[in-house]
Design a protein around this nucleic acid. Structure first.
Length: 284
DNA sequence: TTCAATGTTTAGAC
DNA sequence: GGTCTAAACATTGA
């Protein structure tokens, strides 16, 4: 689930709460989720929380970092006092008793806080890597630029996407090596905002298309971050916010429903094995 | 029962 | 080499 806005939302919430705390103990309930020696992190202080693409990083004071990928069904839940901060894949039980049957790793922190890594499908992972060597890791080095960085312009977008001139724009947008952080929701939403048909091939896009798409990507991501990502929950976090982005989605998961901009309806097609949602009469 | 799910990687075919 | 499809990972819920 978590794409760039969802991970960014978790990152912003966590960094306010856990930087400066120590990891006192780690409980691994599923070895595949965190195949590392827990003694290497126990007793160490958290000095930084960051995001790259859809991954979350937690730097420790011993030159090691936790790198977390939530994949399709991962979630991070920080329990503190009598509140909790929730991020990632939305499920009804995320507001319920912790740990639950999806809990794979438990990080016990100082100040009686606890961070649960839950993952129903077990696709996600937590890795322990040397902070100085993060850039050499395959998970991080092959990534394209961050679309919300100042240096990301429509020319950069065109340049990156043009590596695969024959690929449909929707599929190319989801390629993490071209542009980092865009997944199935925001690829569809961005193309709707830019009025571009998801089936169009890269080499058939004009400079004006790239300019509109650049703006659309930033608008879609920023709007979602503003509303706390798309993680729906019945639980309200400490700031009183919950993820509401999907309430604003124009096309994602709206097959057969009315287009927000014309009398037509949203259509669903399959590209690269994934659902694409778009309005055939608005997007060309 | 069958299908699809906010992700990524890999194997095979053309 | 480029591009496409299907499958794999594992589980749940419509």
């Amino acid at each position: 689930m978590p794409e760039l806005p969802e991970v960014e939302t978790i990152k912003r919430g966590l960094e306010k709460k856990i930087v400066g705390l120590s990891i006192t103990r780690v409980e691994v309930l599923n070895k595949k989720s965190f195949p590392a020696q827990t003694s290497l992190v126990e007793g160490h202080k958290i000095i930084k929380v960051w995001r790259r693409a859809k991954m979350l990083g937690i730097d420790l004071d011993n030159d090691l970092s936790l790198l977390i990928h939530l994949k399709m069904s991962g979630q991070l839940i920080l329990v503190y006092d009598h509140q909790r901060l929730i991020g990632g894949h939305p499920t009804l039980d995320m507001a319920g008793q912790m740990p639950n049957k999806a809990t794979r790793v438990i990080f016990y922190l100082s100040k009686s806080q606890t961070l649960y890594f839950n993952d129903q499908r077990k696709f996600g992972w937590v890795k322990l890597l040397p902070t100085a060597k993060l850039n050499e890791q395959k998970e991080l080095q092959a990534l394209g630029p961050e679309p919300l960085e100042k240096s990301f312009t429509w020319e950069v977008l065109k340049d990156r996407l043009s590596k695969h001139p024959q690929i449909p724009i929707k599929v190319a947008l989801m390629d993490q090596a071209s542009v980092a952080g865009i997944g199935n929701i925001y690829a569809s939403e961005s193309l709707f905002l830019a009025r571009i048909d998801p089936k169009r091939k890269i080499n058939r896009l004009s400079d004006k298309d790239f300019q509109q798409l650049d703006k659309a990507i930033k608008d879609a991501l920023n709007l979602s971050i503003k509303y706390g990502g798309s993680t729906r929950t019945h639980f309200v976090d400490a700031q009183g916010k919950k993820g509401r982005f999907l309430d604003f989605a124009h096309v994602y998961n709206r097959e057969g429903q009315a287009c927000h901009d014309c009398p037509g309806e949203v259509k669903r097609i399959t590209q690269a094995g994934r659902s694409t949602f778009y309005c055939p009469s608005c997007q060309h």
